[in-house]
């Protein structure tokens, strides 16, 4: 059996007659023609590309809840203060040591004086969100985190609070 022409799959009869070879050739030609027709049709199909960030299509791409984008600290709207009690659980839990919390106050009035997250180091594992006992920290659907200077990637408490204003609960897929 010559290996050169043996492009048959295992399902066909092993038959070297002229007729079967001719049939094989015709089958091959037909399948090649069909695949070419498919690619030709695909050539004319409109593309599904969205030319971000030009956004020349009307789609406004916003990821849903649970997307692990930038960070935010949630404010408790009734009490008028951040939920965060500066327990530093997130700081201890973060595998990359991205978080730095400087607590202030005592007892029930404990609050974070400074809260830094280095988004550049973060690997988006969300462990910090999970371990927070008061659900103060959340990752948001905001994906445009690019900066020109790597030092700007260290988010401080003001930016985090600002971003957290539109959230009442931790952004999560239930």
């Amino acid at each position: 059996m010559d290996a050169g022409l043996d492009m048959r799959t295992t399902g066909t009869k092993s038959d070297d007659s002229i007729l079967s070879i001719l049939r094989l050739i015709v089958q091959g030609i037909v399948s090649i023609a069909k695949s070419h027709w498919v690619t030709l049709v695909n050539f004319w199909r409109p593309t599904v590309c969205e030319r971000y960030p030009h956004k020349d299509k009307s789609l406004d791409y916003k990821p849903g809840p649970g997307y692990k984008g930038d960070f935010a600290l949630i404010t408790d709207k009734e009490k008028g203060r951040l939920r965060c009690i500066a327990c530093q659980s997130c700081e201890r839990a973060c595998p990359n040591h991205c978080i730095r919390v400087v607590p202030a106050g005592k007892g029930k009035d404990r609050y974070p004086a400074e809260f830094y997250i280095d988004v550049g180091l973060c690997m988006n594992c969300e462990i910090c969100v999970e371990v927070c006992p008061v659900d103060a920290l959340t990752m948001t659907p905001d994906y445009e985190c690019s900066v020109h200077d790597p030092r700007d990637l260290i988010r401080n408490i003001k930016q985090l609070t600002e971003r957290g204003m539109e959230f009442d609960e931790v952004s999560r897929v239930r």
């Binding site: 010559d2 050169g4 022409l5 043996d6 090649i32 695949s35 070419h36 690619t39």
Partner: peptide, 22 residues
């Protein structure tokens, strides 16, 4: 170019077989 983006690659012995035997 149409061929390139449609067809899978031939194995080297199939390639040589196609030339010499077909």
């Amino acid at each position: 170019q149409w061929f390139r983006w449609t067809l899978p690659r031939l194995r080297v012995d199939q390639l040589m077989g196609l030339a010499w035997k077909f």
